[in-house]
């Protein structure tokens, strides 16, 4: 049976490991990308990141990604709970409401928000008709945040829902038998058990949010440059693969570090849970 894993190993080697190594090589070299003989080892690409311009871009990206991840968590957790608690007959229907928009292309959905939010868009025309003040967020950071939350929310809801729906009812009954009220049951039983779902939800939202470039260029009018924009720019515009690769490596390291921190949080409450 183990041998059946071979095709997958081959796939990973060719399409994941080799490209990653290439990115690493590009990030530590300079020269003409097509002519290996011109390549020279250098750490300049990493040193260049230390300029205030790029540090600010990285900072802005993290602030936006953290904000959108937090909003997704605050909105997504109750939703996941409602779906998990719903009657089994309606559960799939409720999930469908969440999944159907994802069947549409991501770009198309973002363009749709553009025309919804624009100064003369549908929302503002509605507000005007009602005599309300209009919404002037498009393009701008608030529109970007909204676009991120909208696009990534399902990635928060689904893993939390999966974990919540597996919690055994008797556990909750036992909790109330022992005198815990609803809040205490949530805080001492449900929430700790759902931590793995929360952690994978946070990871699945944070990673695309920190590296996105489409949302910021469409809904942000490219006025706020995010790290994803800068990396995209290096490959599709400035033709500086070396700098682009080193930015990608830096981003990867930061994401890996934050994931390591997250997985520690993941482990702790489980141990605590056993102690109780």
């Amino acid at each position: 049976m183990r041998l059946l894993a071979w095709p997958y190993v081959g796939w990973m080697a060719v399409f994941v490991v080799v490209p990653l190594l290439l990115v690493l090589v590009y990030s530590f070299t300079s020269g003409d990308i097509h002519d290996v003989s011109t390549w020279q080892f250098t750490a300049d690409n990493f040193a260049r990141f230390n300029e205030p311009t790029y540090l600010k871009v990285m900072g802005d990206s993290f602030v936006l990604a953290t904000a959108s991840t937090s909003i997704c968590l605050l909105l997504g957790y109750p939703v996941a709970m409602i779906i998990a608690r719903a009657d089994i007959r309606y559960r799939n229907l409720l999930l469908m409401f969440f999944l159907v928009p994802m069947w549409m292309n991501f770009l198309l959905r973002t363009y749709a928000w553009m025309s919804l939010l624009s100064p003369n868009g549908l929302i503002n025309r509605g507000l005007q008709a009602l005599g309300l003040p209009i919404l002037e967020i498009m393009p701008g950071p608030w529109a970007v945040l909204l676009g991120m939350v909208y696009n990534f929310l399902p990635f928060m809801v689904l893993p939390i829902y999966t974990v919540l729906s597996k919690i055994e009812k008797p556990l909750l009954e036992a909790s109330s038998d022992l005198g815990a009220n609803k809040f205490l049951t949530f805080w001492k039983v449900i929430f700790p058990l759902s931590i793995p779902g929360v952690v994978s939800g946070i990871t699945m939202v944070f990673m695309p949010a920190v590296s996105t470039f489409v949302i910021s260029s469409l809904l942000g009018g490219s006025k706020t440059l995010l790290i994803g924009d800068v990396i995209e720019q290096q490959f599709t515009y400035e033709r500086n693969w070396h700098f682009g690769s080193s930015l990608s490596i830096i981003l990867m390291i930061i994401i890996l570090l934050s994931m390591a921190v997250m997985s520690r949080i993941d482990r702790k409450p489980a141990e605590g849970g056993r102690a109780v």
Binding site: S118, N120, G221, K223
Partner: peptide
């Protein structure tokens, strides 16, 4: 100029001006 502008766009500009968004 940056605080004065709506954004940096490409082919979208024409429609944004025609429909009065800018």
């Amino acid at each position: 100029q940056k605080p004065l502008i709506n954004g940096y766009y490409g082919d979208e500009i024409k429609d944004m001006i025609a429909n009065g968004d800018a």
